[in-house]
Amino acid sequence: MAQYYPGTSQVAQSRRNFSDPEYELEKLREISDEGVVKILGHRAPGEEYKSVHPPLDEMDEPEDYIREIVEPIDGAKAGDRVRYIQFVDSMYFAPAQPFLRSRSYLNRYRGVDAGTLSGRQIIEARERDLERISKELLETEYFDPARTGIRGKSVHGHSLRLDENGLMFDMLRRQVFNKETGKVESVKDQIGKELDEPVVLGEPLDEEKLKAITTIYRVDGEAYRDDKDAVEILHRIHVSRSNGGFCPE
């Protein structure tokens, strides 16, 4: 069995769950295909995918063994553009966090490129594959409408205090809380362009649920130091790395 992450805490277990491609993530909400396309903002809903011209079949491509060995993903087969979706995860018990996202994306999806920064995480893939992946990311445990932001730019806010209604700070106010319905709605696409109609992202998860699925160690949740196993493995890696890198003349 693959060993994805050490530790006995709930946080460690959640990290293992996300990283394990065999583990089926809980579906928490329903977002339409059209809604996902709108939020991404790469094409208008219903519009054809922009692909290479002439089509790949009519192109003379150079001989390449890799091309024969590897089955291309749908988007690559069609010659789609590479597009992206970027998430920002609040430090206040967001379900996922950037490093875990990268680790789990690469375990779960083929033909993707993941980029990790301290507060945000981007995934790039061929357009039609990206839409499929985005839908999965938005509908499952990866996402919480309040603590996770879909932000192509102006990502600042993951470490700021939350709003009173639990929403993470967003300078472009893309995801807003509708007081009447109690649901979070996306009124702009990921780079802040206004949408004609808001896309309903659903109710924010409650604090207990978030603490149960979070992958973030926190002193006011589960502290990293209390997870003895995880700390022990970290120490072992640290010592091995130091000894391995130590090279006296």
Partner: peptide, 11 residues
């Protein structure tokens, strides 16, 4: 120093 940013009603 509230632990969350206050909305108008609470303010």
């Amino acid at each position: 120093f509230p632990h969350r940013i206050l909305g108008s009603d609470t303010t």
